[in-house]
Design a protein around this nucleic acid. Structure first.
Lengths: 247, 247
DNA sequence: ATCTTTGTTCCGTGACACGGAACAACGCGG
DNA sequence: CCGCGTTGTTCCGTGTCACGGAACAAAGAT
């Protein structure tokens, strides 16, 4: 029963858009009466909302989602640095963490100029075609790198790297420089530069600046991103303590 | 069964803190084996996580919560204005909406100086003792005002307004000026100024600047807050269209 | 070493989730 | 205006699986 409720809620990933009863029934594979009953229950709990014939994710989920400790704490301590980075660049800023073989975005701030990007808070993208993802991958241990390279590389645009050899050399450069670049691999017309945030040897997060390709000036962005990432690393080291628990 | 799962998850509001099995059992009133089984199921779905003997809210909830349309869309269109406001003031910025007789915060951005405030993203506070809440209340129709005034007024600090008459005159001033003030009513040592965001006659949101009491200069903050709120109102009007559906 | 508290497993019982079928309410084209 | 496909809702008999007491195991506390 929980499982079926989860199936229903998962329909809303990643579009979030409203669905009708029969769409939910079709997408979940559950019979209509079952969806009807469960959806009603979920509405009662505030996990879904219903406006006319359409179902939407409910406010309660927003409330619960905001409380998830990992996400909330990191976002909270990172925010001042993201703001610094935004003020320094006035471009779109990302904060992301690794989850399996994907990057999950915890925060994304921007000004009035809306860049059309596939990244969304709470959403995930392949590690291999975003700057944040590459920064994370380059500092997540050799085993993960090998695993990623052994699988077919997904692509978001025609520019996404799909050649394992190219990716490998790219990762090596990132490990040396501490900076990850990406040009139109996640969205056409957008370039990106990212720096890893460390807590120990491995990256626990990464932050990036996304810029329209036409005005991408890496030399000017690099110091800002690096500074922000190092500042955050330092605060995390101090806050979590050097005793940082393994699990 | 869904209801019981919801009881468990609701234990994490508002602290979000980790709980042990028996704490969950006690807080929910459910017998231990039941909680044990449900918690295991929830972990399987990613709605809870378990580190050692402690349960935490899981990453899946963050993902789902980020998709809730009302919250996400408003937050997204408001963000550039929040950034403007932050750059102009370099103080803590809030974005909130009304939900029943409380204000729910959708966003809170700040710099390195951490103000100790009761407001949290996804969290809710009484309408009556926050600037955002008062701005919302003043423009949510007379019926709601009367209902709020007819009930005992909650307080967060000794400075919170508890006298209905005082609150009534305060609301009238807000309706005239389009600005809501609050001094140490939500947190001692912190003052706040808020402006409503309109979509039609009523406020759909409000945004505020929170400042340490000692450097609270309303005359300098007021124009900035008002400008941001009006800018957001204008964009919302344009985006949602003047045909804005009722439901 | 003993006791207390917490976590886990087991399992018989019965509540209630389940979904096919039948019905009602739309919306559309003729 | 009226059939007709689609979608939403209600009903209800069946069978399942959630339920939680009891008993056991593990971890701290004294």
């Amino acid at each position: 029963m929980l499982e079926k409720a989860a199936l229903i809620l998962d329909c809303f990933s990643p579009s979030g858009g409203p669905y009708r009863l029969s769409e939910l029934s079709e997408r979940t594979g559950l019979p209509k009466p079952t969806v009807h009953r469960l959806a009603a229950d979920l509405v009662g709990l505030g996990w879904l909302e219903r406006s006319g014939p359409r179902y939407l994710l409910g406010a309660k989920l927003f409330e619960l989602g905001s409380l998830v400790p990992h996400r909330r704490d990191l976002r909270e301590t990172a925010l001042p640095f993201l703001q610094d980075l935004f003020e320094a660049t006035r471009e779109t800023i990302h904060l992301g963490v690794r989850e399996g073989m994907e990057v999950v975005y915890l925060e994304r701030i921007h000004g009035h100029e809306a860049l059309r990007l596939p990244s969304r808070i709470g959403g995930s993208l392949p590690l291999t075609c975003t700057a944040v993802g590459k920064a994370l991958l380059a500092f997540s241990g050799a085993e993960l790198t090998e695993e990623v390279l052994s699988l077919p590389l997904p692509s978001l645009t025609p520019h996404s790297i799909t050649d394992p050899a190219r990716l490998r050399t790219a990762l090596e450069k990132i490990q040396v420089s501490g900076l990850a670049y990406e040009e139109q691999e996640a969205a056409s017309g957008v370039s990106c530069i990212a720096a890893p945030v460390f807590a120990g040897d491995n990256a626990v997060a990464a932050l990036s600046v996304a810029v329209p390709r036409t005005r991408f000036r890496p030399a000017q962005l690099a110091p800002a991103v690096r500074t922000a990432a190092l500042g955050l690393s330092r605060v995390l080291r101090g806050a979590g303590g050097p005793r940082s628990p393994l699990s």
